[in-house]
Design a protein around this nucleic acid. Structure first.
Lengths: 325, 325
DNA sequence: ATGAAAGCGCTAACAG
DNA sequence: CTGTTAGCGCTTTCAT
């Protein structure tokens, strides 16, 4: 390779790295040689010599069913897309919270939420590795994050139902141990409190995002008879669609008898017989942006704390209607 | 680091690589130093010096909706799991068939099917990079593969319907330009031909795995009136569930009036009101095995062609019944 | 069992 | 604009 093009090894390097300081004819010679010899630069050597590492790690908590979750998929999709655009390698790491991460294999790490793996985040941060947290406002850590404003999402849901005239508004929450679950509930509850709209204990079911918990919730609500809520906020579309199913099995109509609003804008919104009104999270965009921000940090050693919060959005379909006696 | 343990740099390397030729007391000293200095070996340097690269690439055709496809998800899951077990880094590459692959960033590559990216496979093979194809019996290329026996799958479906007494058996195929689609149809058709079971043109709808095509197919079949089929083989669960929906909307019953069998054993089997009988593909297992085989090749320079074919399996639920007049 | 030293393949000054 | 050269941080002979 060295001499096929009759130039120095340095010039070859310049061509590979697209430096402008190469005479056109030399560039052509080198390119010919590269093509002819099917030359592929050794990336490990490049990384070692340059000190740069154009790959980012995505570490994602590997809970069961993660790959069937709309959330995980959208995150992967967004990150994959951004990496392709920016020409970054994506090193994918499914974590159980303890398995070791190859910190040095990547230039930076994106953590898709923090579930049981806070320790890993702390470790990466303390090692000085550029990190970006997705969907968890980890203010207690010295780290960048980009998250959906779940509190606002809860408010949006409550506001929509309230504006429709409903006053008997119930909710099945997500897992309150997760930040998203807690915040959605908080936003929802605060809104109603401010409106002096009473929300009795029986109207609050502490779920965990599972269909099972939604099933139990709706049974509890329905058992209230005449005192049952006229509208329900489910902290996820999955739970919302489960509830709608049960409501209809009981001979009631959605939204005529009970309005239901979900959260996510995932595929289950379209599956059922009635289109699900929901609060959409900009998951794909969030993931993409996370990559761009992290890339900036890696490149320019951007020192300012990046802490973004993205507003969710109301998506109106058919599952909510005005309150009527 | 060099002197914190008061040993040579070579000994440190030995400890890191777990070589047995280290005195226990020195090992202890080095380990203490590693812990104390939070030392992390530079992977690029390791790879450069050793010539080994313990990471594998997964390149996956990025068709729209890929991440909602049960197929893609199971593949990623299986590969991710195997990589974690074997302690390999997973470099994830979504391809459009043309974007360049960082061939040198990985020790080997797994191609999840070949759609529009045959050229990339050829390139990798010609470069001498260990490759493994998933779910495509690429006999025309000098490359290892592991695939589901789609032809057998088609036979299994036809055999089940036939054994149930059905003689008017229709099918909506997958995309016949894909190997899986073509093979499933081939197996299905061959079986019926052998049984002298006639399958008129009107019973064959050339679909493309989409719900849309399934919708058109079932309308065509239903329009046959009294001559309509009593059972249908859909080349994917998605298509099967779409058809069942339409059948029921038309006031007919599954399986009483029409039996339907799918392919995949994906989540849509459980979604509908009637459990879907289907042909299960061992996707997760296939993906895991692909990693193990590739790993062997990378490690031992295993030269024998690895070409495995995995049998699919009948999963009986409720959507197929015996034929009755 | 250990240390010294020679690279791995490349980038990045530096000098011209 | 180009060639020379000194490392990048590690592994791996080769002596000892």
């Amino acid at each position: 390779m060295a001499r096929r093009a009759k130039v120095s090894i340095a010039t070859v390097s310049r061509v590979i790295n697209n430096l402008s300081t190469v005479a056109p004819e030399n560039r052509a010679k080198v390119e010919e040689a590269i093509a002819h010899l099917k030359f592929i630069p050794n990336i490990s050597a490049q990384r070692l010599a340059s000190g740069h590492n154009n790959s980012i790690g995505l570490v994602m908590p590997g809970y069961p069913g993660m790959f069937h979750s709309f959330y995980a998929i959208e995150i992967i999709r967004g990150i994959g897309h951004a990496c392709e655009t920016l020409n970054l390698d994506l090193v994918f790491h499914i974590t159980n919270g303890f398995n070791p991460i190859n910190y040095n294999a990547v230039g930076g790490i994106i953590f898709a939420d923090i579930i049981e793996n806070r320790r890993q985040v702390e470790e990466a941060v303390s090692l000085g590795i550029p990190c970006m947290i997705i969907n968890n406002q980890a203010d207690e850590l010295e780290v960048d994050y980009i998250a959906v404003d779940n509190r606002l999402g809860g408010e949006i849901a409550a506001d929509y139902l309230y504006s429709l005239g409903h006053r008997k508004i119930a909710t099945v929450t997500g897992n309150l141990n997760t930040q998203s679950g807690a915040l959605r509930f908080e936003g929802f509850k605060n809104y109603l409190d401010n409106k002096k709209c009473v929300c009795p204990e029986t109207f609050i079911f502490k779920g965990d995002y599972s269909r099972r918990s939604a099933h139990m919730a709706i049974e509890q609500f329905l058992a209230l008879g005449k005192d049952r809520p006229t509208s329900i906020f489910a902290a996820s579309d999955e739970m919302a669609s489960e509830m709608i199913g049960v409501i209809m099995e009981n001979g009631l109509k959605v939204p005529d008898d009970i309005s239901v609003i979900g959260f996510d804008d995932g595929p289950s919104c379209l599956f059922g017989t009635v289109g699900l009104t929901t609060v959409k999270q900009p998951l794909f965009e969030m993931a993409e942006k996370a990559v761009r921000l992290l890339h900036n940090v890696i490149q320019h050693k951007d020192q300012t704390r990046q802490r973004l919060t993205l507003p969710p959005q109301l998506v109106i379909r058919e599952s909510c209607g005005s309150f009527r006696k």
